[in-house]
Design a binder for these strands. Structure first.
Lengths: 206, 206
DNA sequence: ACCTGAACACCGTTCAAGT
DNA sequence: ACCTGAACACCGTTCAAGT
């Protein structure tokens, strides 16, 4: 995890890991089948940092929206702590024990608040996808450029060819990432709420 | 583009490209600075396949929702035609001429329907991010496993450790991808509509 | 002025040879 | 039974030598 954090999945290499662990590369292959399997473990190890909605200091969530909000922020902060890991989430679907535990906890929470198994599973996918998507699209994470640099790039474009892009350049730069994330998340939660309304559940929140 | 489609960004190598073009690798470096720059061109070339909302056979969209729906489906189908390209979208923020043209057209369309520059830019980002996110999370694209195989994996899990995940396994397998995509997209559009209501615009759709 | 075979550097993986 | 130096295969990139 440390090596991938520092140098990214591409920069990581078996020789360096062997050196850091003070063994040879051949010995590594006695524990894992190869680099690919190792990356699966790295992803699951990092997902172990995501705490379940119930484990918060504030105790159990009062409604499903609060529970989902906690999960989303937990997942988001883990991705923010390990920005180099993002490409790994695109190549592999996390199915390790920690990934499953998170899924289990969140789906259980939703079920407790009256969600059907289908809607709970679907809601989990949607929110997880939203958090991952927003982490990926966020400029500056795996990309070298900063958000400001991108705004500058847009502004420097040909006004004739891309008038609207240039006009909106400031809007993009000014936009606060955190603010945009929260707004988008609430939109997604609204959507889940609406889906909940269509298929009546046992109970729910106001 | 053809080589990346066939073998993915990782499988692609300069030697094979040189062979296919019947030159040497050294000659390739007279046209591009390296593999990285080449991948930027590959992404923009593929984005050239996205048609603007106005270029549809049905003529100009009647409202912004229809325009956004067209863009979303266009982008989605391009990503579906080139599944191997997905990892490239995580590593680079597309800023080539085709990427900018799409952005310009969609933002212009939204502006025509009364969106402010800020909301138009933000809406474009949100929808593009949603489409990309759903393409990435879709099992089977860059991952070797099939959706059914993943359902099977979930079902085979320990019922004691992950009861809710196992219970929802069928729901996940049964879930139609296209259906889920459309439902999620409408949720996002609802969210944009709500944001539109908060900051009054010049005009809009019913 | 343009092209290229061959080399360099680096990395995933394996294996024959050690202890 | 376990470990490892050295090698093999592959790939991005460069350069001296060709035409």
């Amino acid at each position: 995890v440390r090596v991938v954090d520092e140098e990214g999945p591409a920069g990581f290499n078996m020789r360096e890991l062997a050196d850091r662990l003070e063994t040879s590369t051949a010995t590594l292959y006695r524990h894992v089948t190869g680099k690919e399997e190792l990356m699966v473990y790295v992803v699951d190890r990092v997902l172990g940092e995501v705490r379940a909605p119930e484990d918060s200091d504030e105790g159990a969530p009062r409604d499903w929206r609060e529970g989902m909000r906690r999960f989303a922020f937990q997942f988001r902060s883990v991705l923010a702590r390990h920005p180099s890991m993002l490409p790994l989430f695109v190549v592999q679907l996390p199915l390790g024990p920690n990934a499953l535990t998170i899924r289990e906890r969140v789906v259980a929470m939703l079920t407790r608040f009256g969600f059907s198994a289908q809607l709970a599973a679907r809601s989990y996918n949607t929110v997880a996808q939203y958090v991952l998507g927003s982490a990926i699209t966020r400029p500056g994470s795996p990309m070298p450029e900063e958000a400001a640099a991108i705004g500058e790039y847009y502004r420097a474009l040909d006004r004739e060819a891309y008038p609207h892009v240039v006009a909106a350049a400031d809007a993009l730069t000014t936009m606060r990432l955190e603010e945009g994330f929260i707004a988008g998340l609430e939109i997604v939660l609204d959507g889940i709420d609406r889906a909940r309304g269509c298929h009546p559940q046992r109970n729910g929140s106001p």
